Simulated assay, not measured.
Amino acid sequence: MSKPFDATSKDLLETDPAGWVRYLTRADPQGAVRVVDADVSTVTADADKVIRVDGPTPGLLHLEFQANADAWLVPRLLGYNTLLYNRHQVFVSTYVVLLRSFSGASALTGRWPISPPFGPRWEFKYTVIRIWECSPTDFLTGSLALIPLAPLTARDPAALPEIVNRMGDRIRVDADRPLAAKLWASTYVLLGLRYDTDIIDRLLEGVLQMEESTTYQALLARGEARGMTLGRLVEVRAILARQGSKRFGPLPPTVAAALEGITDLGHLEGLADRILDVHSWDELLSTP
């Protein structure tokens, strides 16, 4: 079953794929950057997210966001790596982003030695990012799409208010209202990986009440800024963006803003149900 943080993390990656490339590789991409179809097979689940970086040496970055133990994670990573290479015919770099500590996380070392009973031994390598070991500055000063990860770096809950205040300062200066709403909604969902709803509400209440956006006020007033409901809002928007882009072409900024402005979950789910019955973004949004 899809979890709220799955859609949230994928949505953040789609917000600024080039920003994620800069964070992961510590370098500016040397060519066009775009999120590509992560469907690697008709017989297996999608990989989390895949970014293609074009240029003199094109390649793929495959990201898996993980918050719980999964005994078969590394074998799946190897399978995705191979299938993506076969489909796109460029080399693949695999990154595992651990959103919280869990039993077995220490076993994810970035190396999987493979010793078959016949033939040579070999090794599959991947990069592991443990968010709780990172500095909040890593996420507060880079791409806006990384900001919601900053609170997950706090080793002590007492550090959270300062991190949230710094987030608010940056978002108010650099993000327009639709993007700001998305960033705070994503923050709410990701904080739910570590903290109770009451703690999150108290932490974010002051920040949200200072904002002028009616989107924030609607979320708070209707009680829709609650774990699974808010996660579902983000998830359905991500589904609409992905499926609509395949059907109608790239998501226009005006449509993205319109989707962000819809805080009624039933309305969004209705749009998702009708997406195969219309022929354009405008027709989808104008459907009663």
Results as ranks from 00 to 15, higher is better:
Ala45Val: 11
Leu63Met: 15
Ser101Met: 02
Val74Ile: 10
Ile51Asp: 09
Thr57Ser: 11
Ala71Ile: 13
Phe91Cys: 05
Val96Glu: 09
Asp48Tyr: 07
Val90Trp: 07
Gln89Asp: 14
Gly59Val: 01
Gly59Ser: 02
Thr82Gly: 06
Ala69Lys: 12
Val74Phe: 05
Ala67Cys: 14
Ser101Tyr: 00
Ala32Glu: 15
Arg34Asn: 11
Phe65Glu: 10
Ile51Leu: 10
Ser41Asp: 13
Tyr80His: 02
Ala67Met: 13
Lys49Tyr: 10
Ala38Ile: 03
Asn81Leu: 05
Val50Ile: 04
Gly79Asp: 11
Tyr85Ser: 09
Ser101Gln: 13
Val92Arg: 00
Arg52Tyr: 10
Val50Arg: 01
Ala38Gly: 06
Val35Asn: 04
Asp54Tyr: 08
Asp28Asn: 11
Tyr85Cys: 07
Leu61Trp: 06
Leu83His: 12
Ala32Met: 04
Pro56Leu: 05
Leu99Ile: 09
Val40Ser: 06
Phe65Ile: 09
Tyr85Ile: 03
Leu99Ser: 08
Gly55Asp: 02
Asp48Leu: 03
Val43Met: 11
Thr42Gly: 07
Leu98Cys: 10
Gln30His: 13
Val43Trp: 12
Phe91Ala: 12
Val92Pro: 05
His62Gln: 09
Gln89Phe: 02
Tyr95Phe: 04
Val40Ile: 03
Arg100Val: 09
Ala67Phe: 09
Arg100His: 03
Asn81Gly: 03
Val74Gln: 07
Asp54Thr: 12
Leu77Gly: 06
Val50Ser: 00
Asp28Arg: 06
Gln30Asp: 14
Asp28Ile: 04
Asp46Cys: 07
Ala47Asp: 13
Tyr80Cys: 02
Asp46Ala: 09
Phe91Tyr: 12
Thr82Asp: 14
Ala71Tyr: 13
Glu64Trp: 03
Asp37His: 01
Ala32Cys: 05
Val74Ala: 06
Asn81Lys: 00
Leu83Glu: 14
Val40Asp: 03
His88Tyr: 15
Val35Leu: 08
Val92Asp: 08
Val96Lys: 00
Val53Ala: 00
Tyr95Cys: 01
Thr42Met: 05
Val33Lys: 04
Ala32Leu: 09
Val43Ile: 12
Leu77Val: 07
Thr94Trp: 00
Val74Asn: 01
Gln89Trp: 01
Gln89Asn: 08
Val97Ile: 15
Leu98Phe: 06
